[in-house]
Each structure stands twice: as structure tokens, then as C-alpha cells.
Design a protein around this nucleic acid. Sequence first.
DNA 1: CTGAAAGCGCTAACAC
DNA 2: GTGTTAGCGCTTTCAG
Lengths: 365, 365
Amino acid sequence: MITLEDIARQAGVSHSTVSRALADSPLVHPDTKKRIQDLAREAGYQVNQVARNLRFQSTRTIGLVIPEVSNPYYPKLIQQVADLAREAGYSLQLHLSGADQAAENTCLASLREQRVDGILLVTAERGLVAREQVNALVASGVPIVLMGWVEDAEHIDMVMGDDAKGGYALAQHLIGLGHRSIAILGKPSHRGGYDRLFGFKTALEEAGLALSEEMQLVANSDAEVKSGVIQLVGLTAPPTAIFAYQDSLAALVIGHLTDMCVPIPQAMTVVGFDNLDLATYICPHLTTVGGHIEPLAAQFVNLLIARIRKTHPNTSPQRVVITPQLVVRGSCALPRRESSITKKTSSPGGYYQQLPTRNTQETSR
Amino acid sequence: MITLEDIARQAGVSHSTVSRALADSPLVHPDTKKRIQDLAREAGYQVNQVARNLRFQSTRTIGLVIPEVSNPYYPKLIQQVADLAREAGYSLQLHLSGADQAAENTCLASLREQRVDGILLVTAERGLVAREQVNALVASGVPIVLMGWVEDAEHIDMVMGDDAKGGYALAQHLIGLGHRSIAILGKPSHRGGYDRLFGFKTALEEAGLALSEEMQLVANSDAEVKSGVIQLVGLTAPPTAIFAYQDSLAALVIGHLTDMCVPIPQAMTVVGFDNLDLATYICPHLTTVGGHIEPLAAQFVNLLIARIRKTHPNTSPQRVVITPQLVVRGSCALPRRESSITKKTSSPGGYYQQLPTRNTQETSR
DNA sequence: CTGAAAGCGCTAACAC
DNA sequence: GTGTTAGCGCTTTCAG
């Protein structure tokens, strides 16, 4: 790799003159400046940012820690963050904390060693896993912004979607349509899961609706979604609507219901959460809440950059809350006629039991 | 930020002793070593990788340049690459080259300045946009591996999926089912698009099937997919199958067909390419080709790491080609009866014209 | 076993 | 205008 010294030798000047010339400093004679710049270009000189970073005590790099990227929620976030960071003149160091939550610690430690100028941490689950690392970071003055609700972290900047309001809006919509028997299904470890359910249940309670145990299902995998759906449909009194609190799970629910020949939305209403692209890929299109990711990403980055630039040196920790909007699409309908349930449920094994199963065999060759 | 010098002062030794102690060198007395290590831990010392990088002339970081991340193909790739890089002890610098292809140049220049140890470049379109940058990189000995077919780049390592074979396999499958009138639809700028079509057309030709102009549609956006689907369905003799050469486009095709009440696969067979997660989210599940991403990512990273470590100092440029496998799911069926077409097409406006349109109104509040 | 000193490549005060 | 020099924090000879 070619250095300032190399150019200096060729130009017959000192390396500081070269440095100045390449920085377009007015302190160097126009002629020499031009000569040096030409020389550097021809030689293909590229400044060594590592040396520069050491000198400046700054890397113009921000670290982004994300649980994973296969969940389609995150790519949308990454895209936004990457674009905003680039516009602000920062590179992005990406770390996936992964399912193994101890990795969050390693990621943060690594970013700290790399002397990134700031850190964006998307918490994987409710609660902060790498608490000591984060506190150490804060203590040593490294700007850090969290995404997602975290308790006992009043001293840290945080942005989050108002998952509770989103859940509340969905429940209200379903209740407004006339649904009285609603099931919920999801992955409890999901970051916003708790609040999504909380808001949803609040609306149910306000409407005087009870939520029995058998209507609350846990699904951490596609297999569990499937068995959950089978279980719900097999009930003597199946729900008329299902709230899957992530779009990808809702998509799977719809897939399994369709496999079981349960028409959507006529026989079952399904709603999701996040309004990911896949919400309009599936059929029928998914009713969900969304629009929060973009502003969330924007605030996430802006807050960090502001801290890095010390625009607000000692302002108290910020809290940014974005409320998602209801997006109504084809996966919702009025509840199926109660009478039809009452009639059918007299036969043992549940309402849908006698329906044929669609062939979903899959082969690979 | 606390430095070696700080610890040295506290311990009453020189900074070089501290450096040795923290590197667990046998050259330092066990007692002092222990004392220094304890001191460093308590003080929360973290080595400054920037200084270290300057010293070692290596950053243990690799750059990943990807066109975008909203196309669901890429997240899958990122996840694999990130995991493999971490396992090999490398951090990942992520750059999105974006739609604006001049940005590819900027990304590469930036990575070079940052002195990453190697670069993984996923080309955005057929052909290498930032050719001079890449050549400069190669010339200065920076390891770089390309993903995607690129012409006139014999001197560079490259990995790619065998898009032509994938297209060929899909066509053969459709032909085997009895389809004779097949349309293709896609985004021509897509990296593998050309080869996917080439393989597909080859199989058609071998089977003696012609592909008229009206059966070849370009769709760069959802709107164009929609108008394309409408156009196809409105033909006097509509195709019996559609090959959308990206899964996401195939999903949109299925969505629009369903909106138009064209039953899939009974009235229309649809196939995609890549076997992304969304292929099983949609209904019916998509027949596609896949399984290439994972091995591709593995070879992508392994090749680069091998170059960085100079395992094969001067081996000739490598070519890794991964053949995708056919994945048969529910979106394919035998072609609809020809007789039914012949009868119906007598009515003006095309076969499907009289079908009602599903309500797809979307509201937000 | 430990310390002094050089040097990675760069910028910026400080001479001249 | 330009050169000399120090120093960012670290590792690693080279002396002792």
C-alpha cells in the first residue's frame, strides 16, 4: 500500500506538504499542490483511514447490533439505517447477536475495541441481555441508543414502537367487526410481544370480553404454529378471529388454515403485526399495523448521530415512541354466523373436523 | 478511554510489560502478570484495535458490498456471511451499493481506505459496474471475491449459482406436466436474469416450443407485474403457465391472479426462482428452484478467507458454480384443458374477461 | 524478566 | 509556503 511518504519522495517534498496538498490546504503553493494531487491520483494513493482514525480518535463508523436478519422485520430496518448512516458520513459495522444471547456481549465488546463512534443496539428480547457491557459503554462515554423496551435503563437513549397501542387498535378493529371469540398466537420471547398482547387484552377487557387459556397459544416455530392452528380449529367453539402478533406468523397461520380448507376471511379472520412486505404477498392480503419501522429507524440513527456530534451535550436520556397505524386489508371479515357454529358443533371433534385436507406434499429433486 | 500507559502507571511497570502481560506472554513474571491482568480487568481496559490495526497492517475486518437488503434474497445471504465471518474471527463492514450504481465505486473506495482485509462484492446487475475500482483493488493485492456472473473478469475469484441450469430444470418440469404455452416475466436487470431465461428458453427450444414476443414480459415494479398479468390473462390464447424469475415477483403474480379470480394452479401454473422463505408463505406454495444460497455463501466466504490467509498464494482465479435444485410445490398443475380455452376464447376480450374481480381495497387509519 | 525505543501512517503545532 | 517534529496506542526488537 502506497503512503504519503512515497508520494512525498516522488514529488521531492516532505510528507506533511503532501498531507496538506491532499487536504486542499491554502497553505501550500497552488503549483505544488496541483503537482502533488496529480501524482497521488496517478499512483492510486488512498488515504489510510486506520492511521487517520488513530490520530483523530474517531472512526466515523457506527456499530449496528441486530439479533438476526432472517426475520423479515430486520432487513427493512437495516436498509433504513444503512442509508441514513451513509448520508451522515458514517460506515456501518454489522453484528448479528444471534439466538445465543451471550453473543450480544461479544458484539458490544468487539465494537468497543474497534472504537466505533457510536452503537445502535436492537435488543433481541424483552430485557437487556448484556447489561454490564452497555453500562460500561455508557460509563466510558460511548454513545449508544437502544431499540425496544428495556426496563431499568432510564439512563440510556431508547426508541421503540408503541406495541401496546398497535395491539389495542387491532383488537378494537376486530371487536368493531363483531368478533367476540378471539385467539392470540405468537412467540413470547419476541421483543414487542408482551406489549402487543397487553394492548390487545386491554381492549378486550374494556369490551367486557374474556380471554380463556385455550385461546392463548405459544408458537416458536412453524411446527408449533401448525399444531396451534389445528388445536384452535378443533375446539368445540373455535374462535372467529386469530391475532398472530408477527406478520410472518400470521402468514403461516393463513397458510395452514388454507391447507385445512378453512376459507379466509369468511370462516376465520386473521391479523398480524408490522406490515412487512409479505403482508401483501400472501392471499388474502393481511390486515396488520405498520408504518412504524421507517420513523423508528430514522429516530434511531438521528438520536445517535446527535449524541456523537454532542449537539445536546448533557440532555437527559431520550425516549422516542412511535405509534403504528392500523392497515386494513382482506384478511378480516365479520364473524361467521354463530348459528352455523352452534349447529355444526353438535358433531364430535369440532366445527371444521369433517373438512377435507388439501394436498400439500412437497418434493425435491 | 483507558490505555496501556494508564495501567502501566498504576502497576508501576512500563507499558511494554503491560502489553506482554495482557498477551499472556511467558516472558513476564507470573506474579506481575497476574497483578497487571487483575488491574486491567478492574479498570475495564479494552485494547484499542485501531492502534493495533495500524501496527499489524491488518484489521480482521471484511467488507460486504450488497445491492440492497429489501429484496428478500439478500438477508439470507447476509445471515450466512455474517455467521461464517464471525466464526473465522472477522468483523463485517456492510455497505449497500443501492440502486444508484455509481455508489458501488464509493463503497469499494471506502472499504479500501478502511483497509479491510478482504472484500465480498455482490454485483448488482449483470456486468461489473465498478470495474476500475475492482482492478485497482486486485492490483494492490486486496483479496476480493465476486458473486454473480461477470464477463471479462477472468483474473478475479467468483462464485455463482448456475442460473441457466435452474431455468432449464423449471422449463423441463413445466414441459413434463404438459404445458406448451408458457410466459416469462421478470426484471431484466436482475443479476441472474439473463441466464435464468437462457436456460429456460433452451429447454423450450429443445422441446420444439416457440416463445412469442407477447409471452415475454418485463416487470420492474409491482405495478408492471400487475399490468403484465392483466395483459397475459387478456390474451386471446393466454399461457397456461408463467415463469417469474424471482420468487418475490412470482408471489406478486399469484397475488394479482388471485385478485382476478384466476384459480392457481387449476387455471394457471406459476413458478419462481430462489426458494426464499416467502415461497411457503404464499398460497399455494410456490414451485421454484433453490438450495443454492447456503453453499454459495459458504464458498463466498471460504474463498476470501483462504485468499486472506494466503493458503493458496498464487493459485489461478477460482470459479465456483452451484447448481440449484428443483423444489416442487402446489403452484403447478397440468395445463387447463385446451378445449375449455377454445370454447371460451370465442367471446371477445379474452378467456378470463368475464370473471368478477375480488375487492382489494386497502384502507389505513 | 523488564525497560527503552522504534515505527505502523497520518495530522498539526511549531519552527524557519 | 514548506520542513521538522511530536504523538495517537500498540507491539516488538534490542539491551540490559
